[in-house]
Amino acid sequence: MTTTSNFPVGLERLADIWVYLAATPLFGLTLTLAAYVVADSIYQRSNKFPLANPVLIAVASIVTVLWLSDTSYEAYFQGAQFVHFLLGTATVALAVPLARLWRELTARALPLLIAMFAGAATSVIVAIGVAKLLTAPPVMLASLLPKSVTAPIAMGIAAQIGGSPTLAAVFALSTGIFGALIATPLLNALGIRDWSQRGFAVGVSAHGIGTARAYSVHPRAGAYASLGMGLHALLGALLLPWVARWVM
């Protein structure tokens, strides 16, 4: 061990342990789980207050820790990738609530599809309209267009229509977080009381993070949110590249 610094021996040892831990997957994995445990307990204790969104609190704490400890995202992701990987498995698991509701969903297929198209079109028209009005550059427009579709699909669509996949991921995740924050007060103000209508609107507009919020509030809202997200993902992947030609 080199002892060239001015640290007392104990602190020197501590710094060495830190350097070791920060280089193993253990650090990123523990940090992610610990941040979530703290964030979720705040969320539960606030009676699921929308602004106490667990993703938002956990991300803010992790970013602060990474910044204070001067840790790169790459080093953090070494451990966090195990949690990230399970996002795919959790996506597959969304088939289960849909299968439980299958008979009801097929009976309501037409209203659900029409509502999905109306919401998806509104999202594209308002986002592109506002961004054009504020003279955003074309790359930004192309990256904003698919923002209400789940992030991996949004990235693919953006790349196809001349946007930036990184920007598309930023915009999609920001949309998810923003949607999760405003959904409850907005839907209350609109007087929407049915869990299926509330959940579906959040899933169509704010995909995964909105769906996570809906699940935490009510299982039925969560199931309908995952349906809205899934439908928007499929139809978005097929139709948005074509829509881009005449709105941009």
Binding site: A115, A118, A127, V130, I192, Q197, V204, S205
Partner: peptide, 29 residues
């Protein structure tokens, strides 16, 4: 540094999309 155009676009369009989806679904249910 790229300005707030994207943030306005996301905030307004997400609110509008939730509103329209929920109102259309309620009207048809």
């Amino acid at each position: 540094s790229t300005g707030a155009a994207w943030a306005f676009a996301i905030a307004l369009s997400t609110g509008a999309s939730i509103t329209v989806t929920a109102l259309v679904l309620r009207a048809m249910s």
